[in-house]
């Protein structure tokens, strides 16, 4: 029972990631692509958690934390590049 549910969840996450990839390729504007990348990160985290439940191991929990950190930093970097055109500022501008 739980195995079937986890498999269905994994397939749904895979479909979501595929749809987000289509949005990244087609996406009319740059913020669409950034949001789609962030969505792919969240779905990757969720699917790794599901795989970790299926395999009954705790070895993947660090992977989840690292993916969360890297997805957070990547989204911030992309948004700042779109908003200001510069990612790391040399001196305080305000």
């Amino acid at each position: 029972m739980i195995k079937t549910m986890l498999t269905i969840a994994l397939i749904s996450f895979a479909i979501t990631i595929a749809i987000a990839t289509v949005r990244i390729i087609l996406g009319p504007s740059m913020p669409d692509r950034v949001i789609a990348l962030d969505m792919i990160g969240v779905n990757l985290i969720a699917s790794i958690a599901v795989i970790s439940i299926m395999l009954k191991t705790r070895a993947y929990l660090e992977v989840i934390l690292i993916l969360g950190i890297l997805s957070f930093i990547g989204t911030i970097a992309f948004s700042k590049y779109i908003e200001r055109g510069v990612i790391i500022e040399r001196k305080r501008s305000r």
Binding site: A59, F72, I73, A77, I87
Partner: peptide, 27 residues
Amino acid sequence: DPGGGFIGGLVLSSAFVLLYLVFDIET
């Protein structure tokens, strides 16, 4: 367990990169 000097160093440096992103280099 998963871990060690290389991965720990990468995560520590990602914290510094986040600081540089949000604030600026002088601060």
